[in-house]
Write a protein that binds this DNA or RNA. Structure first.
Length: 598
RNA sequence: GUGCUCGUAGCUCAGUUGGAUAGAGCAGCCGCCUUCUAAGCGGCCGGUCGUGGGUUCGACUCCCGCCGAGCACGCCA
């Protein structure tokens, strides 16, 4: 017996077949199959209610007609019941659950199934995330974009998209004039000290130089003027200034990568704002020529009169400024050039921006402008989506800062997470060797930071709490990693191997309530995965994995795997193998590393 | 002022895009380790879903009013 990856989709199409047989008006009937609350079975279909209403029938009678017409392949798969006013409830038969377990037994089988059933398979998606500024260390404000962006990229790739990860770093702007000015001052004053500092902690030193330059420019107009001159030299290609600027970029990117390594992030491209310097001219020309942009107060702007808040008639007009009055580019200019580049050069079908939701207005105007621009120039617009996320708040409900009011460095935050995890590992697993405890602490600590961020709906503000995050209970990384470690432990103790062919063949039919509950939850992976793709919200996957780990833990407590009966042992080992597969696959989609012991 | 987002248990959050008796975790209380990892499991307690109307077989979900919060609004990104 083969098994569909998405039972919900299979039920949906069977219901449509039945509806045709029963003489339903197919234009009015949509089955609306979804995962049901456990007490109602595995799936429910609510579409009969809406259909009966439109056609003025008794819903229960319509449901009965439909059920009578169900094809044999569906009734072989699941028990069907009509409930309440006309809900259809489906409970998969144990054989159907077992068929799914048999069919999706390896990482490659799971991935192939997810991709083949996916609406985005074969599409090219650019995911634009992290995007820090060079010459500054990443701080807590950069956490969510990196973590959520990586999870979204992995979820899209698993669903069969060709994913291009692009780090759109902020490597251009007025700040570089000030840094270069301060750099040259330091060079003239004490060259040896400057080089020593740049050798030891290069990014920190450039960040310090920026502050020096910025403070000096604020205090002294002559410095401000000198900084501007350095900026002009940089922009006109002066060799010395360009070399300094390049070095800033290099040390920044290599410092960023140390943090990305902890999160498992590797970008395909790091095309920052500077990359689009020579590409904005074409944008200006085109959007003026096609009448999308206009001059206003010396700047090149776009109004969207059909939207009250972007209209020229608004009380406080808020145009999309594409070129500043002084002729310089801003982020609107480079963002437009970036869309064109991704459409042309990458042949992208979609471009996703994982950026703070406070920039929602900017992206709305950007997308509206791109839409009009592409339409007037006869191009096909790609899918553009702003995946906005909320602010990281402290437990006082205000944006998270250090006690002295500074931004918390991401490096420090991750170190503290690892240190806190280490204390727990020492307490709980003191018998493990030192090196392994250190490795566990890093995976649990970093994973907790990632998971705490991902587990909540990304668009809400996120209240950061050390205690809840590192906590071992509830919907946390540690709970999931613990379930994985226990699964590995079972295989170690029983000297078994996940997916072993003899064990799979010896498995007898599922019997106990906890076995069946675990099998049911495993089958729902398909629904969680596809919903995560459809909504681009990793928390739906987190929630599913948490529930799976919970059902597994209940199974673990109720049904012992290492029993004498070979058939029982084999079927429980198979359940464990599949649980391990789905948990590890899911955690990997979120960007977390897993453990064999903890 | 204009607009966007939000308000669910003491706390932190879900709620499958209008479905069934609104769900978890934490905190509190009660149980469970001579058996595969107790970083675990089982149970109890806890809600007029901010508020008042409306739409309909059905509303936490959609519409309107009010109260409260956060955010964004011309040349930073």
């Amino acid at each position: 017996m083969s098994a569909p990856f998405h039972y919900a989709t299979a039920l949906d199409s069977s219901l449509k077949t039945a509806a045709a047989t029963a003489g339903f008006d197919l234009a009015l009937f949509a089955p609306e199959v979804r995962v049901a609350a456990a007490q109602h079975g595995d799936f429910q279909a609510n579409g009969v209610l809406a259909y009966a209403k439109q056609t003025k029938q008794n819903p229960r009678a319509a449901a009965q007609t439909l059920v009578a017409a169900l094809p044999a392949e569906l009734t072989a798969l699941a028990d069907v019941a009509i409930a309440g006013p006309g809900f259809l409830n489906f409970t998969l038969k144990p054989a159907a659950l077992e068929a799914w377990l048999a069919a999706y037994a390896t990482p490659s089988a799971l991935a192939a199934a997810a991709a083949s059933a996916s609406p985005i398979a074969g599409q090219t998606w650019v995911v634009d995330y992290s995007s820090p500024n060079t010459a500054k260390q990443m701080h807590v404000g950069h956490l969510r974009s990196a973590v959520i962006g990586e999870a979204v990229a992995r979820i899209a790739a698993f669903a069969g998209a060709r994913v291009i990860r692009d780090n759109h770093i902020g490597d251009w702007g007025t700040s570089f004039g000030k840094i270069i000015w301060a750099y040259k001052q330091a060079l003239a004053t004490d060259r040896a000290a400057l080089e020593a500092a740049l050798d030891a902690t290069p990014l920190e030193e450039f960040e310090r130089l920026y502050k020096v330059g910025n403070t000096a420019a604020d205090a002294d107009p002559a410095v401000l003027e000198a900084s501007r001159a350095e900026l002009v030299k940089l922009q006109s290609g002066d060799a010395e200034n360009t070399a300094i600027w390049r070095r800033i970029g290099e040390v920044s990117v290599s410092a960023f990568q140390k943090i990305y390594d902890l999160f498992g992030i590797r970008f395909d491209h790091t095309l920052g704002e500077s990359f689009y310097n020579d590409k904005v001219g074409r944008v200006y020309d085109e959007i003026q020529a096609c009448g999308v942009a206009e001059e206003s107060q010396g700047a090149l702007v776009v109004f969207h009169d059909e939207h009250p808040r972007f209209s020229r008639h608004a009380e406080r007009p808020n145009p999309f400024i594409v070129r500043k009055a002084d002729g310089a580019a801003n982020y609107a200019s480079t963002d437009l050039a970036t869309i064109l580049y991704r459409a042309e050069h990458f042949a992208a079908d979609a471009s996703l921006y994982v950026v703070d939701k406070r920039q929602g207005d900017h992206f709305e105007q950007l997308f509206l402008t791109a839409q009009k621009w592409f339409e007037k120039t006869g191009r096909k617009l790609i899918r553009l989506e702003h995946l906005g996320f909320g602010t990281v708040l402290g437990e006082d409900g205000r944006p998270l800062k250090t006690r002295s009011g500074e931004n918390i460095k991401l490096k420090d935050l991750l170190q503290e997470a690892t240190d806190r995890a280490r204390r727990l590992v020492d307490e709980k697993s003191g018998e493990l060797p030192e090196a392994e405890r250190a490795a566990i602490a890093e995976i649990v600590g970093i994973g907790s930071v990632q998971y705490a961020d991902l587990a909540q709906n990304r668009s809400s503000d996120y209240t950061f709490s050390w205690d809840k995050m590192i906590s071992l209970e509830g919907n946390t990384a540690a709970y999931l990693l613990y379930a994985v470690a226990r699964l590995h432990s079972i295989f170690r103790k029983l000297e078994a191997r996940p997916g072993d062919a003899n064990t799979e063949a010896a498995a007898t039919a599922l019997e106990t309530a906890t076995e069946l509950a675990l099998a049911r939850k495993l089958v729902q992976f398909a629904d969680a995965q596809s919903q995560a793709v459809a909504t681009l919200r990793p928390h739906v996957l987190c929630l599913y994995l948490y529930e799976l780990a919970g059902v597994f833990s209940a199974f673990y407590g109720a049904d012992k795997v290492g029993v004498d009966d070979a058939g029982v042992r084999a079927r429980r080992l198979r359940l464990c193998a599949r649980t391990l597969l789905v948990l590890e696959t899911g955690l990997q989609l979120l960007g977390l590393r897993t453990l064999n012991r903890m």
